[in-house]
């Protein structure tokens, strides 16, 4: 559709080419477990395991317009024991679509960060779009008697996402 008359030529079909693609950022979930609590659980057993509903990815706004994204993790271990953390992405049938595993040495250790890309050049977007639940598991690979000399020793897992979504 064009418009002329005492006017330079206009082309309203350009509206079709307009793209609105905001970068949406939000935290996802965090888990923080103190060393005294870990010590109450027999070693080698999971000191924390929980599957919880997580509809953020299947929200229509995200699921239908997600172009690409990154999930960032930050893990800090100030306890006296090495631990393993696993985050599983589950579909509606309880099937694991993907997993992120973190093996963290005992303190002192540096802050562990990991950015996982989805979409172009990264993992499949379908993993996120079909994820309805997350299962987070923490396993103590050390003993359940030692105590760290750090102040308020704990294991902390943080996560956030930045998604590029196509609004138009």
């Amino acid at each position: 559709m064009s418009f002329q008359a005492c006017s330079d030529k206009q082309n309203f079909d350009q509206f079709d080419d307009l793209q609105i693609t905001p970068l949406v950022a939000s935290s996802l979930f965090s888990v923080e477990v103190t060393e005294p609590f870990i010590n109450t659980i027999p070693a080698v057993n999971a000191f924390y395991s929980e599957t919880f509903n997580f509809d953020a990815f299947t929200e229509r706004f995200v699921a239908e317009s997600l172009l690409e994204g990154t999930i960032s993790y930050e893990i800090e271990n100030t306890t006296s024991k090495p631990v393993t953390l696993v985050i599983e992405f589950l579909d509606a049938g309880g099937n694991a679509l993907d997993a992120e595993r973190f093996d963290i040495p005992a303190a002192p250790t540096a802050l562990l960060t990991r950015d996982v890309a989805y979409g172009a050049g990264g993992k499949a977007l379908d993993i996120l779009i079909n994820t309805t639940d997350l299962r987070v598991t923490g396993v103590n690979l050390g003993d359940n008697t030692s105590t760290s000399t750090e102040t308020e020793p704990k294991i902390s897992l943080k996560s956030a996402a930045e998604f590029l979504v196509q609004v138009k």
């Binding site: 939000s26 935290s27 965090s30 923080e32 103190t34 609590f37 000191f47 924390y48």
Partner: peptide, 13 residues
């Protein structure tokens, strides 16, 4: 204020 789902143990056991 939203910081996502936050689990603190042992408080949230």
């Amino acid at each position: 204020v939203n910081e996502g789902i936050n689990v603190l143990l042992p408080e949230d056991i």
